[in-house]
Design a protein around this nucleic acid. Structure first.
Lengths: 332, 332
DNA sequence: CTGAAAGCGCTAACAT
DNA sequence: ATGTTAGCGCTTTCAG
């Protein structure tokens, strides 16, 4: 019933040549005369031969495949990082396989261990919320110990020695906040965020605070936090209604910006009255053209991560000269 | 420098047992005494052993990995299908690897051929726009000929014989349009869409038209098409401004709904004046709570696709009894 | 209970 | 230009 799979050896038998001749012919080796090469290629195509990549990767000890571990694929930031990585790898003849941790440590450990046990030549990782909050990095360090080429992006930590690709969260937050102050003449800016203690969010908060501090003579600030999106939005709407001095909102992450926009809309405030900025990589959400947001250039982050990884793999040096690349943001 | 990788055979040597004993012990085979089993497990952990999955998959002829090919990961519909598949497979001890075609045929062919050449035990595919438009399905049919278990979802075609998971696009469009007519009392509904001739979009259009036809005594319709999002939006805004009889918009896909919402917002129309509906799987976009959209339940589509695929793999029957599963939508 | 041995399909050094 | 051979790490009969 199932047609017997064609392999190098079945072709060899059928054509009365050796397996190695077939192998070399199909690899277009100049060792083989063009006549037999053509004959073999033709027969291979005809008999629907497709090489067993597993066998070949196994033999060669390399899969030409890179693994990506991300917390969440529905967040446009990660989705675009994915795209950036994919594109670069494709150009370089590498494949990409992805797994999502859903921000759970256990899932992340499992996915990493599966991938690193032979499936991939290297890994690009953004650690889960849980891993970062618990400061649980043993699984990451074990990759390094096992000499698995590794790039960390976005959520990184100083305790891990490897190449990293990040945004300058502090500076970006500072710049965007100052933009509100200088160009939009905001005098009371609310920072909104989900409550959580992720490192990069802390940096963003510091950037915001520093900007406020620089202009403390004329500008005041408030902070609105909530665990859940709808609560956050409710709190913001209340604040906007109750305190008419609020004329700016700084959203610490994707969702905060989105919800701020929606709240303003709902209250029928114009962007003259309340200006919004924040971290937002989803230009679709930027439907108000006067809205200026921080675009982290996720595709560039992906591309750079992939580039660093392939460089590292090529160099063979897996233990020193690690670098941390900062990708510039756009205020768009 | 690089620590010699521990393998079954290094463990065997170190412990003065045979390779097969180690293999069985680590697989918790009852053939091995619990004493040696413990000794071997302990030593394996201590020496940081991680099995070479490539070798094992190669040997066993199965990778316990499923491949997913999607056109685009930044579309929330596909992102959520991804999540649904991932979750189900995880529960069943399978892994998922994903590739995106960017809606290009060439990319899709390449990804499928890589994956199907040993990396995966089965494939879940949503064909690229280009493949559908060119009706180029040879690469898909070659999977079937090669007995690679395959599920198609969302964009499917009758000419391919395999299991499929779809939305009843016609019915969903009809219901949503009737909702506008009956519950929102709309009397002039505009259908907006990117110009393109994808099969599932045609079905949606037919559903819309049928609803209009059913109520043709009292309801009229218009159609606005454009290649690019911003043009589409511009056209819609013009129409809304020029023709005050328009009181409903039906968006044929994710972006159409989004842009309709934005346009209405920009024109400061209330949802009393103009009601919107359409296909939209991104609840974030549904920031107007009175907006009722068609949620295709993408996670469910993913789950069902994965379930059908594993069933098919288990059954071993790769040539008959194919089914097409329709996943119910929600009007939310 | 443990071991010996074959072999999955492919590549690559080493003949010829 | 073509063939021979060894072996990647693992699983799995089959023997002991």
């Amino acid at each position: 019933m199932t047609p017997n799979k064609t392999t190098l050896s079945t072709i060899a038998k059928d054509l009365n040549v050796s397996v190695s001749t077939v192998s070399k012919a199909l690899a277009n080796s100049p060792e083989i005369s063009s006549k037999t090469r053509k004959k073999i290629s033709a027969y291979a195509k005809e008999s629907n031969y497709s090489p067993n990549i597993l066998a070949s990767s196994f033999r060669k000890g390399s899969t030409k495949t890179i693994g990506l571990i991300i917390p969440n694929i529905t967040n446009p930031f990660y989705a675009k990082v994915f795209v950036g990585i994919e594109k670069y790898l494709d150009e370089k003849g590498y494949k990409l396989i992805a797994s999502i941790s859903n921000d759970y440590l256990e899932k992340e450990i499992k996915n990493i261990s599966i991938m690193s046990s032979g499936f991939v030549d290297g890994l690009i990782v953004c650690v889960s919320k849980e891993a970062e909050q618990k400061k649980e990095y043993r699984h990451i360090n074990s990759l390094i110990n096992n000499r698995i080429p590794l790039i960390l992006f976005d959520r990184v930590c100083d305790e891990i020695y490897c190449d990293k690709v990040i945004t300058d969260n502090f500076q970006a937050a500072l710049d965007a906040t100052e933009y509100l102050i200088k160009h939009r003449k905001c005098r009371h800016i609310v920072m909104t965020s989900k409550t959580n203690n992720l490192h990069h969010l802390k940096l963003r908060k510091k950037g915001f605070e520093q900007a406020i501090d620089k202009h403390k003579a004329t500008v005041k600030s408030s902070i609105i936090l909530a665990e859940k999106s709808n609560i956050l939005r409710q709190k913001l709407e209340n604040a906007l209604r109750d305190d008419s001095s609020i004329d700016g909102v700084f959203g610490l992450n994707e969702k905060s910006v989105l919800h701020a926009t929606l709240s303003i809309n709902k209250l029928k405030k114009t962007d003259k009255e309340v200006s919004i900025t924040g971290f937002c990589n989803d230009l679709q959400s930027k439907y108000n053209s006067s809205l200026i947001v921080i675009n982290q250039n996720p595709k560039e982050i992906g591309k750079e991560s992939a580039r660093l990884l392939l460089d590292r793999i090529k160099s063979g040096n897996l233990i020193s000269d690690f670098c941390t690349k900062i990708i510039d943001v756009d205020l768009t």
